[in-house]
């Protein structure tokens, strides 16, 4: 019963966030300068057609309330509308981009976790609390986190080396390392682990039985943080590298005041962000003592 009510509360929160995102997007884009303009108006050959399309859009977007109702009704019918820029259903635009972005995010998160896990392991294995490898790992991750993501991507582009995967992985690995290292350092020096180590318990068993159960809830939170970080970095990275993903689609939609596309992308992002929090906090934390 508790689980059901918790789930209901979370779904309600998600619906509220999505609704607020829709309202916010509509208001911001509808009242952005240039909403009812089209670059083709400047081209004598295509100006007439562009003006006709704008007249239709002006009639459609007369009131924000009407637009909101139309978008919500469309979403409830799983109809994302038609792109203003390309005049094709938004679903057709989003589907291939989504595949590219999800692939990129999953790959970069997986690789980042492997790198962060390895470096945190290396960093924690010295006998002294602050070993040389640990210092080096910390210094590297601090430097990487200090570099803005756009600058990192531009450097890769100028150096003609690496790509979006490298940039996203580096960012996520640096951030994940900071948390994982702290988490492992604390857990590794917990009394029960010290006791187990002193008793000569093998390393795999030590990790499986004594370490992991204790840090699982924190790892869940870290995974959520990874997703949020990756989503935040997605737009600049995809735009700089011209990756045909959701980030670039959103950027182009914003530049062209393509409300249906922008709305679809922001709603998806809102759902992804709120859903990523589902995994954390819904389960009681496992206390290390129970391990």
């Amino acid at each position: 019963m508790n689980l059901l009510s918790s789930l209901f509360r979370r779904l309600l929160r998600m619906a509220t966030v999505v609704l607020l995102v829709i309202v916010g997007s509509i208001v911001l884009v509808r009242f952005a300068p240039g909403y009812l303009s089209d670059a083709r108006e400047m081209d004598a050959r295509y100006a007439e057609g562009a003006r006709n399309e704008l007249a239709t859009e002006a009639a459609r977007s007369g009131s924000v309330g009407g637009m909101l109702w139309s978008e919500v009704r469309g979403l409830l019918r799983r109809d994302l509308g038609v792109s203003r820029q390309y005049e094709v259903p938004v679903v057709e635009l989003v589907r291939p981009c989504l595949a590219v972005t999800v692939g990129l995010l999953l790959k970069s998160m997986m690789l980042a976790w492997i790198i962060a896990g390895c470096t945190a392991t290396i960093s924690n294995w010295g006998r002294s609390p602050v070993s040389l490898p640990g210092r080096l790992c910390h210094l590297t991750s601090t430097v990487l986190l200090a570099v803005p993501i756009g600058a990192m991507a531009t450097m890769c582009l100028l150096a003609d080396s690496g790509g979006p995967l490298l940039v996203l992985t580096t960012l996520l690995a640096a951030r994940d390392f900071k948390f994982l290292d702290r988490m492992l350092r604390k857990a590794w020096n917990d009394p029960h682990l010290l006791h187990a180590r002193a008793q000569g318990v093998s390393t795999p068993e030590l990790i499986r039985v004594h370490l992991l159960p204790g840090i699982m809830p924190q790892l869940g939170s870290l995974a959520t943080l990874s997703i949020l970080t990756a989503l935040g970095a997605m737009v600049p990275v995809e735009v700089i590298f011209s990756t045909p993903g959701i980030g670039q689609l959103a950027w182009n939609a914003a530049m062209n005041r393509d409300l249906p596309v922008l709305l679809a992308v922001t709603v998806m992002m809102a759902i992804a962000v709120t859903a990523s929090g589902f995994g954390t906090g819904s389960r009681p934390a496992t206390e290390w003592q129970t391990a």
């Binding site: 690789l111 492997i114 790198i115 390895c118 392991t121 995967l165 992985t169 580096t170």
Partner: peptide
């Protein structure tokens, strides 16, 4: 000995992953 092997494995894995993501597409 196990600890040492794990450390070596972690370094190798980390290097392989970095090399993979750094290759231009």
């Amino acid at each position: 000995h196990t600890l040492h092997l794990t450390k070596v494995f972690a370094i190798l894995l980390c290097t392989a992953v970095v090399a993979q993501v750094a290759s231009p597409q």
